[in-house]
């Protein structure tokens, strides 16, 4: 079987928070308990979108100790490959869905004397669970959360009501900016900084903290590589004895799954290595995007990670 263990769930609540973000609540369909998890974990949600099965990762934002339900918040992306639109437009209360066991690629460093959270927009979601975890274990934390406007500030009210001393909100449309350099400068020794948000914000925080002399191990960020669209291409799968077409808006992995090929996977973001596949023959150019293979592997033309990497050219034959 491919991927993390699966859980059959029922959608029990859908709450539109604002124009862009909607919250979904999942409870186990068989009435059992969900696994506990650690703050920062995500679940991969399976979406049956016509002929395509999409599997998108979303951060869990409920209390990690609450085994009765998981919640996620989905920001609508009108120009993405369609996963968030599916969640917003097609999913209804009572629907049965499949999600994965929690997977954490953005874990708290429990050695930290203090946790400094920097969130941008929908990047607030993993911190919602981490804050609940730290509140239970008397951890010390502080949140700086930048959002576009009052209207789009998901969970601002909840955070400022429950944690008025720890929460700091910045509204872009009011020209409010995190004074990052000063903020970092004032932290006690042993503080770890965590950032989740748009790529520009992640880069800014990482660079500023590094320039200020923060140790690399004390800077944490979450970066999901979503598969990118690209030119369609044809692949021959030698073991399955199939020739398949990879469409513009699907990944090679998704195309194999659509054709009923049981290809291994876990993170679907180019990081975990589970989907590594041997290339038997090719004539063309690989577009490698993963973090898993070494540079030499990328250049060798012998391996590809089908979750995020693509191909342009005449012939590609895979050992799958």
């Amino acid at each position: 079987m491919s991927g993390a263990q699966k859980i059959a769930v029922t959608v029990t609540e859908i709450v539109p928070l604002n124009e862009l973000v909607t919250r979904f609540k999942f409870e186990p369909t068989d009435g059992s308990l969900l696994p506990t998890f650690s703050g920062g974990a995500h679940t991969v949600v399976e979406m049956k979108d016509g002929a395509i099965t999409r599997l998108n990762p979303y951060s869990l934002m409920s209390d990690p100790m609450d085994q009765t339900a998981y919640t996620i918040s989905v920001r609508r992306d009108d120009v993405g490959r369609g996963g968030s639109l599916f969640m917003h437009k097609r999913v209804k209360v009572g629907d049965q869905m499949t999600i994965s066991y929690p997977v954490n690629l953005f874990s708290l460093d429990l050695r930290a004397k203090k946790h400094l959270f920097l969130a941008g927009g929908i990047g607030i979601t993993p911190f919602m669970a981490q804050i609940k975890q730290l509140e239970r274990t008397n951890g010390r934390w502080e949140l700086h959360y930048a959002t576009r406007s009052v209207a789009l500030g998901s969970y601002v009210d909840e955070l400022t009501t429950k944690h008025p001393n720890e929460t700091h909100i910045y509204y872009d449309d009011q020209e409010q900016r995190i004074d990052l350099k000063n903020l970092l400068d004032g932290q006690p020794l042993g503080t770890h900084v965590y950032v989740c948000g748009p790529k520009g914000m992640i880069d800014w925080v990482r660079k500023t903290a590094t320039d200020e002399g923060w140790p690399r191990e004390a800077i944490h960020y979450e970066e999901f590589l979503a598969p990118k669209s690209g030119k369609p291409f044809e692949v021959k799968l030698a073991i399955s004895n199939k020739v398949i077409q990879v469409g513009e808006d699907e990944s090679l992995l998704e195309a194999m799954e659509r054709e009923g090929v049981d290809a291994p996977y876990l993170c679907r973001g180019g990081a975990c290595g589970q989907c590594e596949t041997d290339v038997i023959d090719y004539s063309g150019t690989f577009i490698h995007r993963d973090h898993w293979l070494e540079d030499a592997d990328h250049k060798s033309g012998k391996k590809i990670m089908p979750c995020v990497s693509r191909f342009e050219g005449k012939t590609l034959v895979l050992d799958r």
């Binding site: 993390a4 876990l266 975990c272």
Partner: peptide, 11 residues
């Protein structure tokens, strides 16, 4: 190490 870092809950 790569394998172990990716061992998941329930697996």
């Amino acid at each position: 190490l790569k394998f172990l870092l990716n061992i998941q809950q329930g697996s």
